[in-house]
Design a protein around this nucleic acid. Structure first.
Lengths: 209, 209
DNA sequence: GTCTATATCGCGATAGAC
DNA sequence: GTCTATCGCGATATAGAC
């Protein structure tokens, strides 16, 4: 049964349908035949556009990478604020959700596909450097209220990174709903890490940071 | 090619081989034929012991659950120390490593298999309650140096739980080696969360906690 | 409990016409 | 670019002998 409605080049339809199917049931059970059927084209046609399923997955990841790099833009010519962090994390959660098949199977996919692994490490390295820089900037801007040498900054960056990458998977694994409220709990955790001495009320959404 | 050496009931050999293969290449590419071959029995024989691959996975998870519950034992008749926490986290990491196929595909597996999902939630719920209790005990014991009402304790528990569940996957995803040193970085992150005002040196291994 | 044999199925991939 | 047709393979699962 076709899954796509609008007019679109077949190559993109394939990617579109594949993403939807992967998100729905995972990459394993979805065959190239399923994808072709969903895109309302013949199996042979699919193989004109892609060598195999692996390449479709790689291409989807490239889309993820592209959007991902657009999330990690730091403000120019002014010190970053916690509001920037909150915004960044939220955008990141949106992206994780859009490509949820990817994080659900990430370790397994990277393990199986060397090309994908290399690309992932490359993108992630750049992202982490920017992120680490953001945390360091908080310290110099005085936004963070704990004694911070380089080792501490490393740890804070690791912690926040861990939350931003795994809070959503954590919610899913534990059967909790994925909505704005639940996602914001992740943001609050991050603020707790950065400002552990703040009063709880000050961490909530109502008080702009 | 057979994978198992010693004498063992076939049912357990199957589980043993399956775990090894799953850990090695993931559940997807491993067929019941592969498992049977690894266990040096016929494919038909395998189906005498298990209905299908799904049931093998479920059975492996039951083994994980059993060991998992043995990890979460809190000290009786004395206040828990940070050393207890460290010990608990390390045992947990060991377990995650032994069943690494499970966390690599956890979200996907739980999604596909309702029985597994229910069991997971049940076990995890009990584990979390004990863990939350441990953190709360730290507060009353004065081991934790930040103002702690119930909401803060919730957050600390969530943070530490997140680390204990995802630090190892995080290392793997980012291509870092899985050795004692790297795993202990996870423990240090947890201590950073609980005692953010401590001097960094006090968090290191040398200073017993 | 264990084996052999077999039935059925669907997947991945290609060839060749249009 | 897209289709139809098809081949070869391997996976799941069962039947029936031992």
């Amino acid at each position: 049964m076709p899954l796509v409605k609008g007019r679109m080049p077949n190559r993109e339809r394939i990617l579109d349908v594949a993403l939807e199917l992967f998100n729905d049931v995972g990459t394993g059970p979805v065959s190239t035949n399923h994808i072709a059927a969903g895109a309302a084209i013949s199996p042979g046609n699919l193989y004109y556009h892609f060598r195999n399923k692996e390449q479709i997955i790689q291409t989807l990841f490239e889309g993820l990478f592209e959007k991902y790099e657009r999330v990690f833009v730091l403000p120019e010519r002014r010190a970053p604020s916690l509001a920037d962090l909150r915004q960044l994390v939220r955008l990141n959660f949106d992206l994780l959700w859009e490509y949820r098949f990817a994080y659900r199977e990430l370790a397994a996919l990277l393990r199986r596909d060397e090309i994908l692994r290399e690309r992932w490490l490359e993108v992630r390295r750049r992202g982490y450097i920017g992120f680490r820089y953001l945390i360091a900037a908080f310290v110099t801007a005085g936004v963070i209220a704990i004694p911070a040498n380089d080792a501490v900054i490393d740890r804070l960056a690791d912690l926040c990174w861990l939350i931003s990458e795994f809070w959503l998977p954590n919610l899913e694994i534990n059967g909790q709903s994925i909505d704005a409220t639940q996602l914001d709990r992740g943001v609050v955790l991050m603020l707790q890490v950065l400002n552990p001495n703040l009063e709880p009320a000050q961490l909530s959404e109502e008080r702009p940071l």
